[in-house]
Amino acid sequence: MKNSFGPGALALLNEIKTKYPTGRAAIMPALYVAQEEFGWLMPEALEAVADCLELPEMTVRSTATFYSMYRHRKAGRNVIRICTNVSCMVLGARTLKGVLEGLYGVAPGGVSPDGRFSLEIADCIGACGSGPAMLVNDDLHTGLDAKKIIEVLENYK
């Protein structure tokens, strides 16, 4: 397991540091960099952020755990966020969930055994007009059905 930032992430962090008056103020953007670098905010990732910003480790952990949208558990290489709110549900989102479970063995909140996908249930991703919809990492995919979702996900290894 790596426990320090690579050169790309370090460059990004150094740039972030110049934009904030104190290390404390830069915790949140630095955590995103760490999450990108390490996959999720494991203790080593928090330590690396603390080291980089010259802050106590506990300060970083307190901040990180306050926010639910950081990943606090091990995630797959690709994060699927599938919407199950009213529009998407009516248009068949639940079936899609079943497809993912059957094909990749990934349940909501979990990671597929091969580490390729993790699945999260999202509450409305703002694509109600063209549901069912999902986010894979930062990409939006709409108008899904059992066939299309497999085609889309084949692009994420």
């Binding site: 480790e57 506990m58 300060t59 952990r61 307190s62 755990t65 926010y67």
Partner: peptide, 9 residues
């Protein structure tokens, strides 16, 4: 010492 903190919310 910054050894403990509030975790979660």
């Amino acid at each position: 010492a910054f050894a403990i903190g509030v975790v979660g919310r």
